[in-house]
C-alpha cells in the first residue's frame, strides 16, 4: 500500500509517496511548480491558484491535489502559463503594487512571478486601487494591506507555528482582507521574531519590519539576477542576506 509510485510532469517521470501532493512530489524531484500562497513549513491551502496544473486534463492546484499513479500532469504548457499570467495580473490589479516605492521590491515573490512569467503586455483589467488605512501602530511592524494578495501565509504561520492567531481573514468575496486580532497591530501579542513576521512569510510588502527598509542594494536583491524557482524561492532563507 505504501509503495512509491510514478507519474509524469510535462513528460518527466516523477516518483511520489502515497498521500503526497503533486507539488510535494515535484519539489522532491527538483521540478519547480510556481506558487505564491504555498511555502515550506505551512499547510497548503490552494488559494492563489498560481500553481495550477492539468492532471489528466483537469485543472487543479498542485499544492493541494494528491498525486495519482500514472497521471499525466501539464505544468509549463502555453495554456497553463496563460492562466498563471492572468492570475498574477489580476493580483497586480487588485492591490496597490507600486514596485518603485515598495520596500519589498527585489525580494517580492509576486514581482518575481511577474518577471518569471514575462508579464509586459498592456493590460485589460482596471486597477482597483484600494485605500485601506496602513497600520503602523506596532513599534517594530507595519501592516499595509493594500499590498496584500490574500495568500494567508501570515495567518497560517501565526496560527500553526506561533500559536497566536494574530491574523485572520475578514469579509467575503471582493471585500475579503486580512485583519488582526484586535483594533490594531499594537494591541495584539505579535512580536518581531514571530514566524508570521519573518521576511520569508509575507511574499509581498504587506508586512514590513520597521527600520529595515531597502536593506539590500539594487542589483544584489534576491530576484535581481535569478528568477524565482526551487531553492531561490519561498522558505529558502529568503531575504536573510
Amino acid at each position: 500500500m505504501n509503495k512509491p509510485f510514478k507519474f509524469e510532469i510535462d513528460g518527466i517521470e516523477i516518483e511520489a509517496q502515497r498521500g503526497q501532493s503533486i507539488m510535494q512530489a515535484a519539489d522532491e524531484a527538483g521540478v519547480y511548480i510556481p506558487r505564491l500562497c504555498d511555502t515550506e513549513g505551512l499547510e497548503p491551502q490552494g488559494s492563489c491558484r498560481v500553481c495550477v496544473v492539468k492532471q489528466n486534463g483537469r485543472a487543479v492546484s498542485a499544492c493541494t491535489q494528491p498525486a495519482i499513479e500514472g497521471a499525466k500532469v501539464e505544468n509549463e504548457t502555453e495554456e497553463i502559463l496563460g492562466y498563471r499570467r492572468d492570475l498574477v495580473r489580476m493580483l497586480y490589479h487588485e492591490g496597490n503594487h507600486l514596485c518603485p516605492i515598495c520596500e519589498a521590491s527585489g525580494r517580492c515573490e509576486l514581482q518575481a512571478m511577474g518577471y518569471r512569467l514575462g508579464i509586459t503586455q498592456a493590460t485589460k483589467y482596471p486597477y482597483l486601487q484600494p485605500a485601506r488605512p496602513v497600520d503602523a501602530s506596532h513599534p517594530d511592524i507595519v501592516l499595509d494591506t493594500n499590498r496584500c494578495i490574500l495568500c494567508g501565509r501570515c495567518i497560517r504561520a501565526s496560527r500553526d507555528i506561533d500559536k497566536k492567531h494574530v491574523f485572520e481573514y475578514v469579509g467575503r468575496g471582493i471585500n475579503k482582507r486580512v485583519g488582526v486580532n484586535g483594533n490594531k497591530l499594537a494591541e495584539t501579542d505579535v512580536k518581531l521574531n514571530d514566524r508570521a513576521i519573518d521576511l520569508a512569510t509575507c511574499p509581498v510588502g504587506c508586512i514590513i519590519q520597521k527600520g529595515r527598509g531597502f536593506f539590500a542594494p539594487i542589483g544584489e536583491r534576491q530576484f535581481d539576477k535569478k528568477p524565482i524557482t526551487l531553492g531561490v524561492g519561498p522558505g529558502k532563507n529568503r531575504g536573510k542576506s
Binding site: Y92, N96, H97, L98, P100, I101, Y127, Q129, P130, A131, R132, P133, V134, N146
Partner: peptide, 13 residues
Amino acid sequence: MGGLPVMRNAIMH
C-alpha cells in the same frame, strides 16, 4: 500603472 503620482489616490482616511 500610475507610478509615484498614483500614491495620491490612496491617501488614507
